[in-house]
Simulated assay, not measured.
Amino acid sequence: MGAWPTRHATDPVEDNGALVGLAADGRAVRGSRTNDHRAAHLLAAALQGSQTDIA
């Protein structure tokens, strides 16, 4: 997921004010943590303008 925001993150002053809305949410999976392992995490991301899931 790190490459997409890096490619699309722009300085609004230098790019004629073109901004991309991005919604992101993350969660730890309940019951996935054990004494030997960390909890599994899920990440979701969507473009707000087109409602497209990107991650």
Rank of each mutant, 00 (worst) to 15 (best):
V13G: 09
P12H: 02
A3R: 13
N16M: 00
D11S: 03
A23P: 00
D53V: 10
N16P: 00
V20L: 14
G21R: 09
T10V: 12
M1K: 07
I54L: 12
W4G: 05
A28Y: 14
A39N: 06
G2Q: 09
H8Y: 10
A18T: 13
A28S: 11
V29N: 12
D53I: 08
R7V: 00
T34Q: 13
D53N: 04
G17R: 07
W4V: 03
Q51G: 04
G31K: 15
H41M: 13
N35Y: 07
A40Y: 14
A44Y: 03
L22G: 11
A40V: 10
A55K: 01
D25F: 07
D15S: 15
N35Q: 12
W4P: 00
D25G: 09
V20G: 05
D53F: 06
G26P: 04
L47Q: 03
G21Y: 05
H41Q: 12
G49M: 13
A46D: 00
Q51M: 06
A39F: 09
R33I: 05
V13F: 09
H8C: 04
N35A: 12
A3I: 11
P12S: 04
Q48H: 08
A40D: 15
A44V: 06
L22Y: 10
L43Q: 02
A39K: 09
D25E: 07
A44S: 02
A9I: 04
T10W: 04
D15M: 14
D53P: 08
V29T: 11
D25R: 01
R27H: 05
S50F: 06
W4H: 03
L19Q: 03
H41N: 07
G21W: 05
E14Y: 10
D36W: 08
L19R: 02
A9H: 10
R7N: 01
N16S: 01
G49L: 14
P12Q: 03
Q48V: 13
A46Y: 02
